Simulated assay, not measured.
Amino acid sequence: MEAKGTLPKTMKALVAYSATDYRLETDYPVPACGPDDLLIRTEGCGICAGDLKCQHGAAMFWGDDTQPAWVKPPFIPGHEFIGKVVWAGENVSGYALGERIAVDQIAPCGACRFCKDGHYWMCQPHEIYGFFHDFCGGMAEYVRIPTGRSVIHRVPQDMPLEAALLIEPYACSKHCVDRADIGCEDVVVLSGAGTLGLGMVTYAKLRSPKKLIVLDMLDERLEKAREFGADLVWNPGKMDVVAAIQEITDGYGCDIYIEATGHPSSVVQGMQMIRKLGRFVEFSVFGAPTQLDWSIIGDRKELDVLGSHLSPYCFPYVIDHIADGTLKTRGVVSSVFSLDDWKTAFDRASGQYGDFKVAFRF
């Protein structure tokens, strides 16, 4: 299946050549595709905190004296993309021209121990769309999808773009909440009400916790969290949230704390307010190390400390429940830009102006 004679040879793309060299190019080659590939025309692509940290030169991406570089430039950023099929290789079946798709951000190798035992999101090579030359992302007019290395999902044609752009982030949110294993007797504190935090709020509410409390330093985010189902919303900059938790739990502390801010102070705060034998789930990508007396984890509270990475097996649920309105999305995509304005978009995506999700529309 091919769209013969209709595809251009070049495209507009944001290309990362190094930590200090991101360029908007108007004549970048459209990806060369092989017999096992799909090519999609990008509809939109969200900007993730990881995209920002990479563009700012964070060592976890580009390496430093203690760790090697992970990314492989030149690459096109963006893993929160959605698009429509415009070309399919001769070995690809089951996809129609114009069909709308999204993909898991990980490109599993299929051969490592993690892929073989079903934990594909922890694939040892760990190549992710938007950080590798062979897996360029959605901040471009076209994206190559190698079907043998991609987890592909169909998206309803009638889903509004502003909702479809939340599929990938909300899938990450779902995995995090699933890791928390929320029960109906749990007092849950969720720290951070950005896009991912809001995805956690709307999904966590469906788990029927005894109390769902959301923390954020921005009151407008807290109001959105309340709209999405939070029972209580607190601003740690305006009140002693640790004392408040102690007061409503008879001095024990919360049962579950989900950290979704990426700020070291939120980790310390969570360790202070969680009860003995509680569950702490860390989600965020951090820009700086966190200093903590680890005695609180073992000797003092015997905590379960869990991580959450990517969105395994979560896309189908999220697509279905965004489509039927169960997962709330209204107003989360707060700013949409053209790729020409990528510098402004990245600046707005920092959250300093109160934005939730900032995205590109093509």
Results as ranks from 00 to 15, higher is better:
residue 217 M to V: 15
residue 176 C to S: 15
residue 144 R to L: 05
residue 42 T to S: 03
residue 14 L to D: 10
residue 248 I to V: 14
residue 29 P to V: 04
residue 193 A to K: 04
residue 101 I to M: 03
residue 23 R to G: 07
residue 58 A to L: 11
residue 50 G to K: 10
residue 280 F to T: 00
residue 53 K to C: 04
residue 279 R to G: 00
residue 159 M to P: 01
residue 260 A to Y: 00
residue 9 K to A: 11
residue 114 F to N: 14
residue 304 D to Y: 03
residue 360 F to S: 03
residue 103 V to Q: 08
residue 119 H to I: 02
residue 360 F to D: 00
residue 278 G to H: 08
residue 149 R to N: 14
residue 70 W to A: 14
residue 110 G to E: 10
residue 86 V to C: 11
residue 279 R to Y: 09
residue 53 K to H: 15
residue 182 I to W: 03
residue 40 I to V: 12
residue 333 V to G: 02
residue 287 G to D: 12
residue 51 D to T: 13
residue 211 K to N: 13
residue 144 R to M: 02
residue 300 R to H: 14
residue 49 A to P: 02
residue 323 A to L: 07
residue 45 C to A: 11
residue 346 F to L: 15
residue 121 W to Q: 14
residue 214 V to D: 05
residue 193 A to Q: 02
residue 174 K to N: 10
residue 187 V to I: 14
residue 210 K to D: 10
residue 333 V to E: 02
residue 74 P to H: 08
residue 128 I to K: 00
residue 345 A to N: 11
residue 204 A to D: 06
residue 211 K to S: 14
residue 300 R to E: 13
residue 80 E to D: 13
residue 288 A to I: 03
residue 52 L to V: 15
residue 270 G to K: 05
residue 101 I to Y: 08
residue 186 D to E: 10
residue 252 Y to W: 12
residue 191 S to R: 02
residue 285 V to Y: 06
residue 329 T to D: 01
residue 147 T to V: 14
residue 287 G to Q: 07
residue 242 V to K: 12
residue 181 D to R: 12
residue 94 G to T: 05
residue 2 E to Q: 12
residue 250 D to S: 13
